[in-house]
Write a protein that binds this DNA or RNA. Structure first.
Lengths: 207, 207
DNA sequence: GTCTATAACCTGATAGAC
DNA sequence: GTCTATCAGGTTATAGAC
């Protein structure tokens, strides 16, 4: 039996606060989240937040690093894997991202939002700043299509994977799609994106 | 001589405030923007903001409607145009969006962010709630590929157009791309997306 | 470790002089 | 219309009892 969200009562006080902070920060962002809300969400007193984490900002920084690692961490081993083909990587990346985001639908928006406020955050997590430029993935792209800009392709691949989640609330409102239907679509996208990304990879590159 | 950003001094006080509010709200969102910052950005006193707009919320609502109309407004005539082909629409939409976003790079993030906080906002601007479902564009997609889900395609098209701007700050940091280079890439994307969207439209739909 | 009470600060809004 | 000064309310952070 998987324990996605462990019962609040079972957690230590510190972890209760973390869990509540994760939920609220990802949902509403730093500025719109009040420490009172976090304390209430955790079923605890406000003072405990400062007792354990000293300040809202410090608590936020902890959650942020966690989330950044989730968002970029799983990508690193894939794009540096010498043993897999480009096509295999496309499948792994899209399926991996969709699985990750189906469990954490608010993650991309949160990350993108807070990077906007502080772009240097990325560097701290990604460590090596040329991690993308030096990757096997980018080299394989360059090999397959020496005539094309691999970054253009990457933007489209990520857009296809991530954008639906960034747009989720608006999309659901416009198309009258409930959560069940949305996640069903994302499940289908796991098959679609590999096919589509290969199609655009083979497409004639316009001059 | 185009006047993109008219000199602040030339504007009426009311318009100075609007302009400053546009800038800060789109950049940082509602919660993170302080009325004091808006006043300072406009080179004016805080009290004038309330004199002209009564409250932060009311000022925000005005900017928000403006932006929503910008973001969705230009789409409506295109997707309801009976006289143009599907392929022509793909070109018009991608080129139109990229042009729009090159002038307003922060627009998508702002829209997406505030829709998240208040999904009903969309309805007020889009008026008819089935505006997408009933569109010529969706019908043409359905005609061309009766075996496929047109919404999946739409998500990819929008993702390819909009996502680069949502990710702009992070992308530039990771790839060490300055503004000039970024906009150059977006210019190139105007040619790429039509080709790519047609490619995925023709791709074999996986079962 | 956990709570209540309160301090210290910030932010949106207004009063009133010019 | 525009400014300075200030209020009222809310938010983070801390002091101190238990």
């Amino acid at each position: 039996m998987a324990k996605k969200t462990p019962a609040l009562a079972d957690l230590s006080t510190e972890e209760k606060i973390r869990e509540a902070a994760r939920k609220l920060f990802t949902k509403k962002g730093y500025a719109a989240t009040r420490t009172r809300d976090i304390a209430e969400e955790a079923g605890l007193n406000l003072a405990l937040l400062n007792y354990y984490f000293r300040s809202k900002e410090k608590l936020f920084a902890i959650i942020m690093v966690e989330k950044l690692q989730k968002f970029f961490g799983f990508l690193l081993p894939i794009i540096y894997d010498e043993s897999t083909s480009l096509e295999s990587k496309l499948e792994t990346i899209s399926a991996g991202y969709l699985d990750l985001l189906m469990v954490n639908p608010d993650l991309p928006f949160f990350i993108l939002n807070e990077i906007r406020n502080n772009p240097d955050l990325i560097v701290n997590v990604v460590k090596r700043k040329d991690f993308l430029k030096n990757s096997v993935f980018l080299k394989q792209l360059k090999d397959q299509r020496p005539d094309a800009d691999p970054l253009q392709f990457l933007l489209s691949l990520l857009g296809m994977c991530i954008f639906p989640f960034v747009m989720k609330p608006g999309f659901q409102k416009i198309t009258d799609t409930n959560d069940h239907k949305f996640f069903q679509m994302m499940e289908e996208r796991k098959k679609l994106i590999p096919v589509w990304s290969k199609a655009i990879l083979k497409a004639k590159y316009p001059k």
